[in-house]
Structures are given as structure tokens and as C-alpha cells.
Design a protein around this nucleic acid. Structure first.
Lengths: 173, 173
DNA sequence: TTTGTTCTAGAAATAATGTTCTAATATGGG
DNA sequence: CCCATATTAGAACATTATTTCTAGAACAAA
């Protein structure tokens, strides 16, 4: 059993990439280092889009950010696979190198701050924002990934759900 | 590293349950057998509720079934943890004992058939039904689990999302 | 070219994990 | 109580993974 479901094996990385074990350890230090790097790079790619969209002005505040999830899945399917189909805890754990743990904390803090600011700006409760911005979009794309592409038509449904939970709470200014 | 994140180790089952390795193998045959059994029992518990709710008459067809996800999380938190926080592929794989694979196929077929019937009855497209019945509710509860209880207030939000995607498509009769 | 550094390769060492096995212990029927 | 069967226990074994290590290849600067 060279590759068992659900966990990344060094051997399977070697087999699938053609890179030697030695190179892997030279570059990443350890298995934990490799996994954390994969997660952090993926997260950075998504956050860049998400944060930009969150500040974007529009008819319905935050809607563009909610739609970044399906768009990211279509634009960067490989990274989306990691973001959508892995649990964070599979890639980051207590024995992740400290430097990388710190990097993750920083990235998370930045997003948290942005969402907090969004909530203050719009008057939305945090829980509602998280649901509309992350929970529903993620739940939606997970119906398709991995294995199938995320259909364009899904965006309209995500938008409906977003409006349904956000608009009633929006303190328009 | 006795227990690594994300994968169930026999040793960790022994440690957490106090049951000996011998008993585990006597009862389940193999690690694969144990994991599959956990998944199947969980699924059965959820399906029982879900299918009952799906046939339940009501103002908005299917709404009760959509709300079974957060309710299940509150009623059976241990099983919900498996259902919500594990990928199926972590527990079921190609070397799952055939008998158990068959059991899973049967269970899945039954649910699929029920959802198909629901769609025929209501005129809803399958994709919309899956989104409202499964995708959104699951995405919503995942914001909390594991670690926090699923708040009652979440049900109202799931209902809003469900109505938003389902009602416009409903061919009322 | 020479020199030093970085990177690659893959076998060998180390460590963790799954499974088997045998003896001991319970359990239930007669 | 006795026996047969089912279950438990956990050490020993086999398998599979991660990590280290050494030798060599690529690369860049002088």
C-alpha cells in the first residue's frame, strides 16, 4: 500500500513528482515542513483574492468575496484541491516547524482583521459574515470537488444564499 | 508520534478506548474493517433521520431534511463528528472488505433513490436539491465542528438559504 | 579551469504502525 | 461443576514510513 487514502506519504510525493527524497528533505526539512508549506502557499493564493474582493465596492457588500471560492476552484484547481479537500489539521500540527506556525498565525490574523473590519463597516454579525462568506460557498463547491469541475451556474446559487442571510441584517448606510 | 493528525491508528484506538488490539482484530478483522464499520454505522444513523424528514409533509418540501444536519450534530455529537469531519475516503477505500463496500453501496443507493423521488415529486433539479439538502447545511455546521457546539440559531440561516435556492424552482402542485 | 556552494540521488538506518499468535480469561449451556 | 465456545490481552512479528547519510552532479563566481 504505497499511498493510503487521506494522508500524504513522502514516498507518494517522490513517486508523483519524480523528485528524490534527498531533494525533498533538502528543501523542506521534514514531512511536516513540506505539508505546512503546501498549506501556506495555497492559503496565500486564496487570501490574496479573497481580501481584494472583500474590499471591492458593490451592490451587495461582500458578495464578490463569497464568490471568490468557486472562482478560485476554477482558476486554480490544484491549489483549490488542497484548500477545499484537506483539513487544516492534516497539514498543520503541533510539530509543524515553528517558523511556519508563525507564518500561518500571521496570515490568519490578517484575514480575521479584514473580516472584523467588514463586519464593523456593514453592521453584520460575525457569525453571519462567516456563514455567507465561507460556510455556504465552501459547502457548495465541496459537492463537486474532487472529481468534477465547479459549474459556473453554482455562483448564482451561492449568491442567492448569500443575499438570503446577509441582506436582512445589513444596516445600509 | 503515537497519534498523527488526520488518520486513525490502531494504537490510538487502543489507547482511547482501553480495548486491546486482540479484541479489535477479533471484532473487526482489520483496520479497514473497523473504519468502514464506524462510517457505516454513522451513516445509517443519519440516513434514518434524513430519509424520514425528506418524506415529511410541510410548508416547504425538504426543509425538514435540510435541517436534519444541524439537528443530528446536536443530538449525536460523536457520530456527527465522523460524518462531518471525516472524508468518506479516509474510512472507505479499495481494500475495505467487500461485504462492507456492498453495505455502503446499498445505503447510498437508497438515499439516492429517495432524493431522486423527491426531485420528481417537487420538480427540483437534482443539483439544487443536493445543494439545499446537503451542501449548505454541511458547510454551515462545519464552521463550528469540531470544537464548538452547533448553535440553534444556525437553523434559521440554513432555512433562509434553503428557501432562497429552492423556492424559485419549486413547481408547486 | 578551479573552487566552493547548492542541490540531487537513492541506499541504509531508524522509527512507527498494522497484524498475528498463543495463552489466559470470561461466558453460557448442560 | 464441567465443558465448549467466545472473547481478551499484549508480546512478538512483519510491514511500511520517515529520516539520515554519503557520494556525486549542477551551477556560479573569480
Amino acid at each position: 500500500m504505497l499511498v493510503r487514502d487521506g494522508e500524504v506519504r513522502m514516498q507518494s510525493v517522490v513517486a508523483e513528482t519524480g523528485v528524490s527524497v534527498g531533494s525533498l528533505y533538502h528543501r523542506f526539512g521534514s514531512r511536516e515542513g513540506l505539508l505546512a508549506r503546501a498549506w501556506l502557499d495555497t492559503l496565500a493564493a486564496f487570501h490574496a483574492r479573497f481580501l481584494a474582493a472583500l474590499d471591492q465596492p458593490g451592490d451587495v457588500p461582500g458578495l464578490a468575496a463569497a464568490l471568490e471560492t468557486p472562482r478560485f476552484c476554477r482558476a486554480e484547481p490544484d491549489k483549490a484541491l488542497i484548500l477545499v479537500c484537506c483539513r487544516r489539521s492534516e497539514l498543520i500540527s503541533d510539530d509543524t516547524p515553528e517558523a511556519l506556525q508563525a507564518e500561518l498565525a500571521t496570515a490568519n490574523d490578517r484575514v480575521m482583521a479584514a473580516i472584523d473590519a467588514f463586519c464593523r463597516r456593514t453592521g453584520l454579525p460575525l457569525e453571519i459574515a462567516r456563514l455567507g462568506l465561507i460556510g455556504f460557498p465552501l459547502g457548495a463547491v465541496k459537492l463537486y470537488m474532487p472529481g468534477a469541475p465547479v459549474p459556473e451556474a453554482l455562483d448564482e446559487e451561492i449568491e442567492r444564499a448569500y443575499r438570503a442571510v446577509v441582506l436582512p441584517r445589513l444596516v445600509s448606510s
